[in-house]
Write a protein that binds this DNA or RNA. Structure first.
Length: 166
DNA sequence: TGTGGATCTTGTT
DNA sequence: AACAAGATCCACA
């Protein structure tokens, strides 16, 4: 699925986990990232969606952020990924809140029990943080594993779901 | 604890 | 077509 030529809106907003960047197509979220460098994040985004019309709309982004982090709404998503990645991301969506799974479990779930390492990479490629709860995937030995925006954020998200709001 | 091999997908060349 | 690099896991020392 190619998204070139499509009109994409985006904006910046606050979240319990720091500044975030949200992008959407036709009201469906296609990107949600956390970061500490606006310009760099914007560069990555522009590069990823070059060839599209990009429209900034912070007010709507703030709106989305409220739905996501305060009202816990499940928004519609627009994802662009390989077959394998889609399967992995679908599996992530089934992990209940305040719960964790392992990379190995996900591998089993999608019918490729040995593709653990590949699952790790696919999880890391998740374009929509938090909504696709890649923070709920940890290692079999109980340690956190990795997180694209740092383990602090991953840990904080898990605490947040437990109701622990520091 | 830590190291090495197994294993699979992806991006790059 | 080949290769290197992963948000891993398991065995074994």
């Amino acid at each position: 699925m190619s998204m070139a030529g499509i009109e994409i809106s985006y904006g910046f907003a606050k979240s319990p986990f720091g500044h975030c960047f949200i992008a959407w197509i036709d009201n469906k979220i296609c990107q949600l990232s956390f970061f500490d460098n606006d310009e760099y994040e914007m560069e990555l985004f522009a590069e990823k969606f070059k060839g599209n019309k990009l429209i900034q709309n912070d007010r709507k982004a703030v709106d989305f952020a409220q739905q996501i982090f305060e009202k816990n709404d499940r928004l519609h998503l627009q994802l662009d990924g390989t077959e394998f990645q889609q399967k992995v991301w679908d599996a992530l969506l089934e992990i209940p809140a305040n719960t964790t799974t392992t990379y190995a479990d996900i591998a089993k779930k999608i019918g490729k029990p040995k593709a653990v390492r590949a699952v790790g990479t696919a999880v890391g490629a998740n374009p929509v943080a938090y909504l696709i709860p890649c923070h709920r995937v940890i290692r079999t030995d109980g340690t956190l594993g990795g997180y694209r925006w740092g383990l602090e954020v991953k840990k904080r998200m898990l605490d947040f779901e437990k109701g622990i709001i520091p």
